[in-house]
């Protein structure tokens, strides 16, 4: 995934003017050929915080929840009911662990990038107009790194394939992609079968682009948010304390919307392939 992300990131890096916020995460230290970047550091810290928080909440489970146990129960139950309404009871029981993890994790990684100090503490230099520009921040939003989002999209793609095969079987999977749909007979049926076979290839291309779209959507939104905030705080030096504030609130919203979109899209993709029968849509 590291290589994959690097390949995607290189052509854009060739632009003459260097962007204010670097497109890729900066390495903090090198262990052999393995670089630990600032985005990875944030990702690990957030993962650790979530794990500790969840452990604390479930260490001493009460029948009547209170405090952080209540918070986690509210979050997990809310997500479960929401997903059940969309992808149905059987599927949610099987796949909830993934969608809940991805939502909670993306949400907290997005919001952690907004904590003051992330992206503004680090190594840098003075620009000719007297401003200090950070070249290598100590911390950088985890999803502002294409490697992270590509890794999550790739994991989903593998799981999607496994769930599809489990639900449909290999034959059913191929039939779902290339087989004719609808009820036609005779000559029209043969015509439709040919057309649907051709459509299947379009479907395959569209499916192969899903992980790309998923990873770029999340990365693009978060990276654009970081750039926007950087631009707002350097555009008018005298108002640097005021201009970013509205955008902070917008970024809080973007953080939750992108986490929701990532979860919903992966859930709906799974629903589309794991559906049995022609029209068994998830009605509440």
């Amino acid at each position: 995934m590291l290589i994959c992300g690097a390949v995607f990131a290189t052509p854009a890096m060739a632009v003459e003017a260097e962007p204010a916020v670097s497109l890729k995460a900066a390495p903090l230290l090198q262990i052999g050929g393995f670089a630990i970047t600032n985005s990875m550091l944030v990702t690990w810290v957030v993962a650790l915080v979530i794990i500790i928080f969840a452990q604390l909440a479930t260490r001493n489970i009460q029948k009547v929840p209170g405090g952080i146990q209540n918070f986690w129960e509210w979050l997990v139950e809310g997500l479960y009911n929401f997903l059940e309404g969309i992808i149905g009871r059987d599927l949610v029981r099987k796949t909830f662990w993934f969608f809940a993890t991805i939502f909670i994790f993306i949400l907290f990684v997005n919001w952690s990038g907004l904590v003051p100090g992330v992206g503004t503490v680090g190594w840098g230099h003075y620009t000719p107009n007297g401003l200090f520009h950070i070249d290598r921040p100590l911390l950088r939003g985890g999803n502002a790194d294409l490697n992270m989002t590509t890794a999550m999209a790739a994991i989903f793609f593998v799981l999607w394939f496994i769930w599809a095969i489990q639900a449909q079987g290999v034959g059913g999977f191929l039939k779902h992609l290339f087989g004719p749909k609808g009820e036609t007979t005779g000559f029209i049926f043969i015509l439709m079968a040919v057309i649907f076979f051709m459509m299947g290839w379009l479907e395959v291309v569209s499916i192969l682009f899903r992980p790309v779209a998923l990873s770029f959507r999340l990365f693009g939104n978060i990276y654009a948010g970081e750039s926007l905030m950087e631009a707002m705080s350097t555009m008018v030096p005298a108002l640097a304390w005021l201009l970013p504030i509205p955008f902070y609130f917008m970024e809080i919203l973007v953080g939750i919307v992108q986490a929701l979109v990532f979860m919903l899209l992966t859930a709906v993709f799974t629903l589309l392939i794991a559906q049995h029968g022609p029209q068994e849509h998830a009605h509440e």
Partner: peptide, 17 residues
């Protein structure tokens, strides 16, 4: 709301691709 959301999100994903 839920069916509209599902179909809307799908349509947006396909458009975005």
């Amino acid at each position: 709301f839920t069916p509209v959301l599902v179909h809307g999100i799908l349509a947006i994903a396909f458009t975005e691709a």
